[in-house]
Design a protein around this nucleic acid. Structure first.
Length: 1009
RNA sequence: GCUGAAGUGGUGGAAUUGGUAGACACGUUGGACUUAAAAUCCAAUGUCCAUUAGGACGUACGGGUUCAAGUCCCGUCUUCAGUACCA
């Protein structure tokens, strides 16, 4: 009976589906365990072998936990809103919903054939109205919440209104817009409803405001900070500019501190936590107010006193301030600039405004700035301080202004040096003639009045105290984390449940959700520059009938326009893990029932790519905290443990195409143009890698190459070279590497020539230079898998040729889960042979090899060391080493000719998480009628591993020479005596007396001397 | 620049607390079976020297601690990832 993996795998996949083997229950006596993968965006290209890596790892863990007696939730779904489907729609007119549906079908087919233990009954799709109904609902919750800094949590907006009605806003300590005017209860009650709404918007956790956004003209939409990489859009790499627009924003900054603190409570990698910490960017220091010294003109005009607020992490260096720098965009710049400096300042502002974000980032070395002509007054010394503007100060961080302390900050130092500004030294015994002293350690403050002689810690405390005394500053913590822009000018996303009355946003009542995405003719922005939803004809809200109606009915009394933006990609993915908790049957009334949320709590193990470190993983945490504060869920963090799987890279294959190369000495006369022309005419010659590399290192010329090989085209070519112009013997060659489809390469890197000729029609009649054995060897290099590099490997082919179990084992066998590693299909024969060998251990020519034979000591030892190792490996997510362990176990048991059911049956349970199909098949053949999936994991018994003797390595000065078999229970002294008496030891010592003998019982003996 | 991860045969990688470096595979070479191929099985395979016995070297590089270092410490280099005039 041969191992017919295709048939076996199909059978068991059908069995699991039919019996709903992996359907999770929300009521169980078993402890719960929730294993989640980051759900995929269903792209048109389908899966390549890199995609399932994380899914296989999580599936192994989920299956292992079932064997360990847990009630496991292991769901899967699709993040199905997104740009590619929309762009396809723009090009073809195909509705994104149809494209998405087709792609999902492909994904599902591909996933199913790998044999995952997903509970598909709980599938979610973010683009389904019954799903995004709840995304809209959460948006409304955010709108109806404000963040109370006193209770340190979000509260219902009603509680804020109550406060305003009775106390005004002066006693409210909220995370809100800056510069909100103070008002009393009387004021509030006297305000118009519109004025009240306007004010409330400044407190809501999602708010509509004119903000400076990242506008991507090529994509026609705004982008969040995490969607921009190196100054260009993450998708497509298009330029991004700053632009003021009215947009929905999420007040994530309210949660900055809790997002930071929460990191200490979860089991994520340090690098990931560090990314989030950097993104949140907490810095502790002080805010300081500097009064601007009014010019004579201002004094006579009796204008208001101007104040520049700055944030500093070094209030202790306040006496080192010798100038101030404002961002060119700072609002005070135009007011304080003197008439003399006006022209220079305006020119500078114009110059910097023209530079894109990217240019500014690329060029951080150039120092530039302009003096405004104005001065500020030092809060303590009352000395005048010149005010400059410079683009090294960013408008978007802190207050957009800095107090420059050149002796303590390198950028201030460089600026001061460049513009010849004074650099006062306020550090005791520190030389600042070459560079600033940026460290806080090992230094005492000097020349600083009341701070003299203090260290950083003391001086900081005192400076803040003194600033507070004169009411010109206070201790302050600043965060880099900005509020997240939540509007996108796209079609294929969640519509907002929002309509506008006189320009003020109104929420549609929860009872009328979902607001379903309207139909449009085209998926482009309108001619007027409105988002695609501006093309919808039926996109107005009727407050009488609570329904979406035709736009012509808009009367601004009962029927109002709806929001035209849609939500960003991260909206639907910020809460999907809760949706899975509910049985599909009970998903009507809530996003997940209280019981389900209480039972499953949060995700125990989350596996996905590291590219979501600052986007999805931060936004999800934010939304979960909001939902917790408002009493909808019970957990503070969504993902207890998180693992990033590394990417699987492709092993690209290249053929070398020869091209012409020359040096100056190649010319006799004439011009280089002749050679360039000649280069065009060189016949196409493909040279095998090893041959090429040998020729290249030998420095062979083209002429010599022609002599070695019989290449008629090259011969003709060389005969036609004008030898008056060119020294033909000095004509050399180089190579152009041409990507070749990896499916044309065999395991020895040999190219399938006929296949290549058919694949690349342009290369049908080229000249070939082969190896001595008449093969063509390609050059290989590791790159990211991509269609354009022809190195994509489709799992469908692997499953057809070797089976899902082989694919699963091989993906794990490649290396540590978290590491980047290259795929090489050739290696799969290793694990495939292992499965065949394992099959043979159980099934012989004439039926089962397994019987009731009493297990031998060796059998038991092999089994139990395998149990121990595999269990440890799974718990450490070291899946690659367990695959080796299985190989060793099967090799040993084959060697031992083991037929004992007592050994071979538990072995199947160990392998079942990794290769579930073959495990189920053999399990059934051993006479079991139930699926192996919930069979208890075998228990490790250490007594089987106890050895009576040890093969001691004997080393001399740390170098192992030979081994001696000695009893385990031998004493240290006896071991020493036995080793020294051994003839090999005597021969090794050659008459010398050892200085010292180290004996580590059970480990090693080392003889020094 | 800063932060994090890493550097081991021809290749992917193993070595859990310092204790036999290179497990397990791929590839390569040789052999068996076969008319032949595939499949399967057996053997060898870190480098260098040596007919053998054996020896020297060897975990990016340079030092150090130790009876003993891939593993610990100090310094240097390289690669990858993230991030950046963050005041």
């Amino acid at each position: 009976m041969r191992y017919d993996f295709n048939k076996i795998e199909k059978n068991w996949q059908d069995y699991w589906a039919k019996n709903e083997t992996f359907k999770a229950s929300n009521t169980s006596d078993k402890p719960k365990y929730y294993v989640l993968d980051m759900f995929p965006y269903p792209s048109g290209a389908g899966l390549h072998v890199g995609h399932p890596l994380g899914y296989i790892a999580s599936d192994i863990y989920a299956r292992y936990k079932r064997h360990k007696g847990f009630n496991v939730l292991h769901p899967q779904g699709y993040d199905s809103f997104g740009l590619p489907a929309e762009q396809y729609a723009i090009q073809t007119g195909q509705h994104p919903a149809i494209t998405t549906e087709t792609n999902i079908a492909t994904y599902r087919r591909q996933l199913d054939q790998i044999g995952f233990s997903f509970d598909w009954s709980r599938e979610v799709r973010t683009s389904n109205p019954e799903y995004y109904k709840w995304t809209q609902w959460i948006f409304i919750q955010l709108f109806e919440s404000w963040y109370n800094n006193n209770s340190n949590k979000a509260e219902a907006i009603d509680t804020l209104i109550t406060k305003f009605t009775s106390e005004g806003n002066t006693t409210v300590n909220a995370a809100c817009d800056e510069n909100i005017e103070p008002f009393t209860a009387e004021d509030w009650n006297g305000y118009s409803s519109e004025k009240q709404q306007e004010l409330l918007l400044k407190y809501r956790l999602t708010y509509l405001a004119e903000t400076e956004v990242n506008w991507c003209p090529a994509l026609g939409t705004v982008l969040a900070n995490d969607e921009i990489v190196n100054g260009v859009s993450e998708r497509g790499g298009h330029p991004v500019v700053r632009k003021k627009m009215t947009q929905w924003s999420m007040r994530i900054s309210a949660y900055a501190e809790r997002l930071l603190q929460g990191l200490d409570t979860i089991d994520w990698t340090d690098s990931l936590k560090e990314s989030q910490r950097n993104w949140i960017g907490k810095s502790v220091g002080a805010s300081v107010s500097f009064n601007v010294i009014a010019s004579e003109a201002q004094q006579s005009a009796n204008s208001e006193k101007q104040i520049i607020d700055v944030f500093t992490t070094r209030p202790d260096t306040i006496y080192g301030v010798s100038f101030m720098t404002l961002a060119p965009e700072h609002e005070l710049v135009s007011q304080i600039t003197t008439a003399d400096q006006k022209a220079d300042v305006e020119a500078y502002i114009e110059k910097t405004a023209k530079r894109s974000e990217r240019d500014r980032m690329a060029d951080v070395k150039t120092i530039s700035g302009v003096f405004t002509g104005a001065y500020a007054e030092h809060p303590f010394s009352k000395e005048p301080i010149p005010i400059w503007i410079g683009d090294y100060v960013l408008a978007s961080y802190g207050t957009g202004a800095v107090m420059a302390v050149p002796c303590g900050d390198q950028r201030d130092y460089d600026f001061a040096k460049y513009f010849n500004i004074e650099i006062p030294n306020i550090f005791e015994d520190i030389d600042i003639s070459e560079e600033a002293y940026g460290s806080k350690d090992n230094v005492k403050i000097a020349n600083s009045d009341f701070l003299n002689g203090m260290n950083y810690k003391k001086a900081t405390k005192r400076a803040i105290y003194e600033l507070e005394q004169i009411e010109q500053g206070e201790g302050k913590t600043n965060y880099r984390l900005r509020d997240a822009v939540f509007s996108r000018q796209r079609y294929w996303g969640e519509p907002f449940p929002v309509y506008y009355v006189n320009g003020m946003p109104q929420m549609i009542d929860k009872a009328h959700l979902p607001i379903v995405l309207p139909e449009v003719e085209k998926y482009l922005p309108t001619e007027e520059g409105e988002p695609p939803l501006g093309r919808a004809d039926v996109w107005a809200w009727c407050t009488e009938f609570n329904s979406v109606v035709s736009n012509d009915k808009i009367n601004n009394t009962t029927i109002h326009p709806l929001e035209l933006n849609t939500m960003p990609g991260w909206a639907g993915s910020s809460w999907y893990f809760f949706r899975y908790m509910e049985d599909a049957a009970n998903r009507g009334e809530t996003f997940a029932s209280e019981d389900a949320l209480k039972y499953w709590e949060n995700v125990d193990l989350y596996i996905g790519g590291s590219e979501h470190a600052t986007g999805h993983l931060l936004y999800s945490r934010f939304w979960v905290k909001l939902l917790k504060d408002r009493g909808f869920v019970n957990v503070e963090e969504p993902f207890k443990k998180l693992i990033n799987q590394g990417m699987i890279l492709g092993t690209s294959a290249f053929v070398f195409k020869l091209n012409l190369m020359w040096q100056d000495t190649t010319f006799h006369r004439g011009s280089e143009d002749y050679l360039k022309d000649l280069a065009q005419k060189l016949p196409t010659i493909l040279c095998s890698t090893d041959v090429y590399q040998k020729y290249f290192s030998d420095g062979l010329s083209l002429f010599e190459l022609n002599e070695k090989h019989d290449l008629p085209e090259l011969d003709t070519f060389l005969n036609n070279v004008d030898t008056n112009q060119v020294d033909i013997h000095k004509l050399s060659f180089g190579e152009t590497m041409i990507h070749t489809d990896v499916s044309l390469i065999n395991s020895s890197n040999e190219l399938d020539i006929e296949g290549f000729k058919n694949w690349r029609k342009g290369y049908k009649d080229v000249s070939w230079i082969f190896e001595d054995d008449k093969t063509y060897k390609v050059f290989r290099d590791v790159e990211k898998m991509s269609k354009s590099k022809y190195n994509v490997v489709n799992p469908d082919n692997i499953v057809a040729d070797y089976g899902a179990d082989s694919l699963r084992l091989y993906e794990m066998f490649l290396g540590p889960l978290e590491q980047y590693k290259p795929w090489n299909t050739a290696g799969i024969t290793g694990v495939h042979n292992f499965l065949k060998k394992m099959w043979k251990l159980y099934v012989g020519e004439n039926g089962l090899n397994v019987n009731g034979a009493e297990p031998t000591k060796d059998n038991l030892k092999t089994l139990h060391k395998t149990i121990k190792k595999v269990q440890e490996d799974i718990e450490n997510f070291s899946f690659n080493t367990s695959v080796s362990t299985f190989m060793i176990a099967v090799n040993e048991l084959t060697q031992q000719k083991c037929t004992s059911k007592e050994i071979l049956q538990p072995l199947l349970v160990l392998i079942s998480p990794y290769a579930p199909h073959i495990a189920e098949e053999l399990w059934e053949r051993l006479g079991n009628s139930e699926s192996i999936s919930t069979t208890p994991f075998p228990t490790f018994d250490a007594s089987h591993l106890v050895e009576s003797s040890k093969n001691y390595p004997i080393s001399f000065n740390g170098k192992m020479r030979f081994t001696i078999e000695l009893p385990m229970d031998m004493s240290k002294d006896d071991i020493e005596a036995a080793v020294l008496a051994n003839e090999k030891t005597i021969a090794q010592l050659d008459g010398r007396t050892p200085k010292k003998v180290i004996v580590v019982p059970g480990k090693i003996v080392n003889i020094v001397g």
